[in-house]
Design a protein around this nucleic acid. Structure first.
Lengths: 347, 347
DNA sequence: TTGTATGCGTTATCAT
DNA sequence: ATGATAACGCATACAA
């Protein structure tokens, strides 16, 4: 059987510059020059350019990014670490990062940590091997030390959401959540007259945990209020976790009249479970969330919450990153985000 | 100024195998062998292995994936194209793909098309350059021809959600949405006694559009029902698009008594706008969605909808893909997904 | 068991 | 204006 036949087990490899060069009757470096016209000091004759472009077209040639990266140390690739892609807060961030990256001609690798440290470490590993041009991350457990290490290994610019990293090559976007929660709590106390408050936090190992709890505590202490220990509960940032908390609350003999919840996803779960148990929001218990995810306007009552503009966050993170990619001498920057209370019907 | 100082503009490059080899006092290929122990036919002495591992440890050596890929034609990278990362249907898919990929030792590039064709084409471009090991996609406008072309250029295994592609190397995961919508519509007519129905679709250029409309139409034709032209509207799969449709409906003199909507995101927007206008769901108008995204259980009334198990979808897509990555001789497969009606309170 | 040599597809530095 | 040639970091065929 010696027909001309396509080899079924081995895939035809894509054309290379050599193939283009051969077809165009020029040398391979000439093809490279034609394709990378950026260097204006060099010039090539119109006819060879045409020959080359025709060959490129005919063969459907695409440059091989791996070879290029190996040579140039540039990957045109950025890596993004987010904590939970199924929490509506994050997809909007990912979306605007992606859209900025696309404009800049970069591809995006997205990693979802599901809040687990091991996954965050795996992210660092992958990123080190892949030698990406930039890194955007929402670290949960990763320490400042981990991040310095990451920078040392990769040399890549890094932009971080939420953690105050002290490093010349790491830019930070953050919101003053402590103050925002302090203000919201004061508002519950002073404007709405609540005296029995509760707070749903997250374990202290999650960085926003202590900050947000502190904001709440400062406000109640300032007002000289006592907090019942049953009204201080920890969740895990997820809607399901919120449901657990909601069930726990529903069993209590005595509910707080107002609840500050560390994020919207949990607040949603709590509201759904409380309503399930016949407890009314806000009549029996007022609820304030944090994030202003889209569901906050879908749930009834709509959720009073502290806004984080996630599209803006993604935009700022990528702006900082790409600025640093094109100029690594930039000083480290911190951009603080607005963080306003949006009053709706859950309070 | 000739102090020993770190060069501030140029970043120290990461250690290579040569560095490891030099430090360990062996040759570079030996380091390669120690690190890729998979080949059991080859053996290396315990002492050199130790020397090498010590050097690796000391230098913090990480293999350079670009160099490796160039050599092996393997990237340990898959590319994923989804239509709208901010639609809760997709993040769950992305999440399970990511989690399977992580187990298999693969990284994931995610592209968000926002339903636009140009972005889908850019995806194909990027993926061709990047020579990924596999592709998972939820194409919206991409034609079968585009996908054959993509396969021809990349030679990478492809798994697709929703489109029935006829190609030996492209696996497909799909749901019989036409039948599911047909059944749901019949149920509205026969069990719930609705006679004035409406359907919110999407333009025919979006592939699910014709199928889902056909399912609806077949059911109403079978029941000999007339559909008022005002009750056939097209949206764009987004919640905001649903709001537009809702506003349009609210202005109508005569509403249908039941509405079948092509996806949940639009259904949510419609419900919110109708309620805004004082129209009650389901008393004034019953609504059925499609997808069963998490928000379907958050909105009040909770949304009756046709379930698509997005975690399962992601799982199946990645299973098919990784099976084909390890064995390209597999025949093309189609897996059909369950697609059951979940009855809640919007009907 | 280990070392030498080669090539993957590019870009960059020389020449010419 | 263009062509040789080398080098990026790694894996592998072959030699020792």
């Amino acid at each position: 059987m010696a027909h001309a036949m396509t080899n079924p087990t081995k895939v035809k490899k894509p054309p290379t510059m050599r193939d283009v060069a051969k077809l165009a009757g020029v040398s391979q470096p000439t093809v490279s020059r034609v394709l990378n016209e950026k260097d204006t000091t060099i010039s090539i004759s119109p006819e060879t350019r045409k020959k080359v472009m025709d060959a490129v077209e005919k063969l459907g040639y695409r440059p091989n990014m791996h070879a290029r990266s190996l040579r140039t140390q540039e990957t045109k690739l950025i890596a993004v670490l987010i904590a939970d892609i199924t929490n509506s807060f994050y997809p909007h961030i990912a979306r605007s990062i992606q859209s900025v990256a696309r404009e800049e001609g970069f591809d995006v690798m997205i990693f979802n940590s599901d809040h687990v440290y091991d996954n965050e470490k795996l992210f660092c590993e992958s990123v080190a091997r892949r030698a990406v041009d930039g890194i955007i991350m929402v670290p949960i457990h990763l320490t400042e030390q981990d991040m310095r290490e990451l920078y040392k290994q990769t040399g890549s610019p890094i932009a971080v959401l939420g953690q105050h990293i002290n490093h010349p090559q790491i830019d930070v976007v953050y919101a003053d959540d402590e103050t925002a929660i302090y203000n919201a709590t004061c508002w519950l106390i002073n404007e709405l007259g609540h005296h029995q408050l509760g707070f749903i936090g997250v374990p202290d190992i999650l960085p926003p945990g202590p900050r947000r709890r502190r904001g709440f505590m400062k406000a109640v202490e300032k007002a000289n209020l006592e907090i019942h220990p049953d009204h201080l509960i920890e969740g895990d940032f997820t809607l399901e976790g919120g449901r657990e908390v909601g069930k726990q609350l529903a069993k209590l003999d005595c509910l707080p009249t107002a609840l500050v919840v560390s994020n919207d996803a949990m607040a949603l779960g709590i509201i759904l479970e409380l309503q399930e148990a016949g407890i009314r929001v806000p009549e029996d218990i007022a609820i304030v969330g944090y994030d202003n995810i889209p569901e906050a306007t879908i749930i009834r009552p709509s959720l009073t919450t502290i806004e984080q503009n996630s599209s803006l966050i993604g935009h700022e993170l990528s702006r900082l990153l790409f600025e640093r990619i094109s100029d690594s001498s930039l000083p480290a920057r911190r951009v603080e985000l607005p963080n306003d209370l949006i009053i709706r019907n859950s309070t």
